[in-house]
Amino acid sequence: MLKCINQWGFPESTPIEQLFEYSQAAGYDAVELNLNPSGSVGLTLDTTATEAEEVGRLARKYGIKLRSLSTGLLWGAPLSSQDEDQREQGKRIVSKQLELANVLGMDTILVVPGVVNAEISYNDCYRRSQEEIGKLVPLAERLQVSIGIENVWNKFLLSPLEIARYIDEFNSAYIGSYFDVGNVLQFGFPEQWIRILGPRIKKIHVKDFNTKVGNINGFVTLLSGDVNWPEVVAALREIGYSDTITAELSPFEKAPLQMIYDTARHLQFITDL
């Protein structure tokens, strides 16, 4: 398995080339970039194919693989929204992810499919998000880039059986799971989810979680929470997963880059299990 770090692990203003340089020095095999708002560092909604190719060239210069593309932009334009304009913006975001991933040779993008709240019912979230993602399947298939549905704290897709059903109903090899190990610990066992989702899993995010805290403040650095890492790795090996294990953590407040180096060592320990 490949050790990977998400761009969010670096200070926000870190130039892309410097980000790759630091990642190489820390011993990572890959970096997961994010699609950011216009005017941000790195890939944005305005990035051209030529600009994306330059990012790919810089990654190769430092021996860094680019395997997936994440984004936080869908929280502001959920595919489950009651507002048609928001859903259209959400589809534009995912389309841009697919196009840039194709240019950069990535095979997966991360998509948060929708959000359940007081205004958006569970049923409506399920129906609307499937309808909107379904419209993007032809593009994903043409570009040969998978849409990885992430399990996240959005009050939606709360069991592995439901996520498996949700994915299978698309009847496309290009819709799968972007499984986040830490996100599930509050209400499940990640090793069980991995075995159930099996080959549907396209990519893996890792963070740790302290169940005694039990809220958003419970997310902690790798190996310092309650994830049963030997069982998680055993499950991943059982399903034949050998791709990136991507740490999705924030920089340390006092020494931002130290998180990058500490996490690389933690990932090495985990992938050696």
Score class of each variant (00 low, 15 high):
D85A: 11
D85K: 14
Q86I: 05
Q86V: 06
Q86P: 08
E88V: 05
Q89P: 08
G90A: 14
G90D: 06
I93R: 00
I93V: 11
V94N: 05
V94T: 04
K96W: 04
K96R: 09
Q97S: 08
Q97K: 15
E99V: 05
E99F: 12
L100A: 04
A101M: 07
A101K: 02
N102L: 13
N102I: 06
V103R: 07
L104K: 07
G105W: 01
D107I: 02
D107W: 04
D107E: 06
T108E: 09
L110P: 00
L110H: 05
L110C: 10
V111W: 00
V111Q: 06
V112K: 02
V112A: 09
P113Q: 03
G114E: 03
V115I: 11
V115R: 12
V115P: 02
V116P: 02
V116L: 12
N117C: 13
N117S: 15
A118C: 07
A118M: 15
E119N: 10
E119C: 08
E119Y: 12
I120T: 09
I120S: 13
S121G: 15
Y122N: 11
Y122T: 06
N123R: 13
D124A: 11
C125D: 10
C125A: 10
C125F: 03
C125H: 01
R127S: 10
S129T: 09
S129A: 09
E131M: 13
E131A: 10
E132D: 14
E132S: 08
I133E: 06
G134F: 07
K135C: 13
K135T: 09
L136P: 05
L136E: 07
V137Q: 06
V137D: 11
P138K: 08
P138V: 03
L139A: 11
A140F: 04
E141W: 04
L143N: 10
L143G: 08
L143A: 14
Q144L: 05
V145R: 01
V145E: 05
V145A: 08
S146M: 07
S146R: 12
I147P: 01
I147F: 15
G148V: 00
I149H: 01
E150H: 06
E150P: 01
N151R: 02
N151L: 04
V152C: 13
V152N: 09
W153S: 13
K155F: 13
K155G: 15
K155T: 12
F156S: 06
F156W: 08
L157Q: 01
L157T: 00
L158C: 09
L158I: 06
L158E: 11
L158R: 11
L158G: 10
S159T: 09
S159Q: 05
P160T: 00
L161R: 05
E162R: 00
I163Q: 03
I163W: 00
A164W: 00
R165H: 04
Y166V: 01
Y166M: 02
D168V: 01
D168N: 14
D168Y: 09
